[in-house]
C-alpha cells in the first residue's frame, strides 16, 4: 500500500477518535463543574491536558464554561477543536475514498457536513451548556458509527490495519490524558464526597461507570479506577487494551525497518500486561502517565518514519 494512503487512513482514524475523546473530556469537565461549586479549576485542567491554555486565553482571557465548551467543540479557529478534527478526518478520507468502502466515506463525509451545520448555530448568541453537551453526545455517537461501519464493511487488509492502528494509538493517548486531568491539579480532593463525584464523573466520561460496578462490586476508590483504566485488558478504553492492539497490528504490518518500533510497542505493552497498580502508584500516577504519553508520542513518530512518510 502507498505510504500516503496509509498516512491518510491512519490520520482519518486518529482525528475521528480524537474528536470523540475531546467530547468525552468536555463532558467530564462539564459534569464536574456542575457538581462542584466553583469548579473552574476543571476547565483550566481540561485546557491544560490538550496544551491549549495559551491559545484559549489569547482569544477569550478569563476561563468560562461556555467559552471553553465552544472553543473546544465548535470553534473553527482552534485547530484542535472537535470541528477541526472532524474536518481533518473528512479530508484524509476524501484523499483515499477509493481505498475505503463507500459506506465508510459516506459516514465520515456526512459527519463532517452535519457537524459544520450544527457548529454554525452553536457559535451564535447565547447557547446553554446543556445544548452544547447534546452536541458532544452526537459526536460520540458518530464516532461509534464510523468505527462500526469500518469494522462492518472493510476487508481486513493493510488499509484496515492502519485505520485500527490510528484508532488505538490515539485512544491510548487520550485515555491517559483524561486520567491525568483528575490528578493534574486536583488531587487530593477536599473531602470524600467530592472525591466520589470526581472519580464517578471520570468513569462515566469513559463509559466505564457500570463496568466499574460490575468488576469491583464495591465503593469507588482511586486505586481501583486507575487499575481499571490502566491495567484491565478487557476494558476497551484502558491503556492495556489499546497497547495490546497497537502491538498486534505492528506485527501484522511489519516491514524491513520496523523491528525497533515493534520492540518499543512490545515493551510498553508488556509493562501493562505484567504491571501492578501498587508499583504504578508508588511512582506517582502523574509521573507514570507523563512517561506513558512520551512513549506513545515516540511510537507515533516512529510509525510515521517507518510506514507513513518514509524518507525515500
Amino acid at each position: 500500500m502507498l505510504s500516503r494512503t496509509a498516512d491518510s487512513l491512519y490520520w482519518m482514524a486518529r482525528y475521528t477518535e480524537r474528536a470523540e475523546n475531546i467530547a468525552r473530556l468536555m463532558e467530564v469537565s462539564y459534569r464536574m463543574s456542575l457538581q462542584m461549586h466553583g469548579g473552574g479549576g476543571y476547565w483550566g485542567a481540561a485546557l491544560g491536558i490538550t496544551g491549549l491554555e495559551a491559545a484559549y486565553s489569547a482569544k477569550h482571557g478569563e476561563i468560562s464554561a461556555n467559552d471553553v465548551l465552544r472553543f473546544m467543540g465548535t470553534d473553527f479557529g482552534n485547530p484542535s477543536s472537535i470541528l477541526s478534527c472532524l474536518k481533518s478526518a473528512r479530508e484524509n478520507c476524501h484523499a483515499v475514498r477509493g481505498t475505503v468502502t463507500s459506506e465508510v466515506w459516506e459516514t465520515i463525509n456526512t459527519t463532517w457536513l452535519e457537524a459544520r451545520a450544527s457548529a454554525t448555530s452553536l457559535m451564535q448568541g447565547d447557547v446553554s451548556g446543556s445544548e452544547l453537551t447534546k452536541y458532544f453526545e452526537w459526536v460520540k455517537f458518530r464516532s461509534h458509527l464510523s468505527r462500526g461501519v469500518t469494522v462492518g464493511t472493510m476487508l481486513q487488509d493493510e488499509a484496515f490495519h492502519f485505520i485500527r492502528l490510528g484508532t488505538f494509538l490515539e485512544r491510548a493517548d487520550n485515555t491517559a490524558r483524561l486520567l491525568d486531568v483528575k490528578y493534574d491539579d486536583l488531587a487530593p480532593a477536599e473531602d470524600a464526597r467530592n472525591e466520589y463525584y470526581e472519580w464517578g464523573a471520570l468513569l462515566r466520561s469513559l463509559s466505564s461507570f457500570e463496568i466499574y460496578r460490575k468488576v469491583y462490586r464495591d465503593v469507588i476508590t482511586p486505586n481501583r479506577v486507575a487499575e481499571l483504566l490502566i491495567l484491565r485488558d478487557d476494558m476497551p478504553r484502558s491503556l492495556h487494551a489499546c497497547m495490546k492492539e497497537v502491538d498486534q497490528i505492528l506485527g501484522q504490518v511489519a516491514n524491513a525497518r520496523s523491528a525497533e518500533t515493534r520492540r518499543m510497542a512490545g515493551r510498553v505493552y508488556s509493562s501493562l500486561r505484567y504491571g501492578r497498580i501498587d508499583d504504578i502508584l508508588s511512582v506517582g500516577l502523574h509521573d507514570y502517565l507523563t512517561d506513558f504519553l512520551t512513549n506513545t508520542a515516540n511510537l507515533g513518530n516512529r510509525i510515521a518514519q517507518d510506514f507513513l512518510v518514509p524518507m525515500a
Binding site: 502507498l2 496509509a6 524491513a256
Partner: peptide, 9 residues
C-alpha cells in the same frame, strides 16, 4: 522509478 509504500520502495 519507485513509489513509497508501507513495505518500503
Amino acid at each position: 522509478l519507485f513509489m513509497r509504500t508501507t513495505q518500503g520502495p
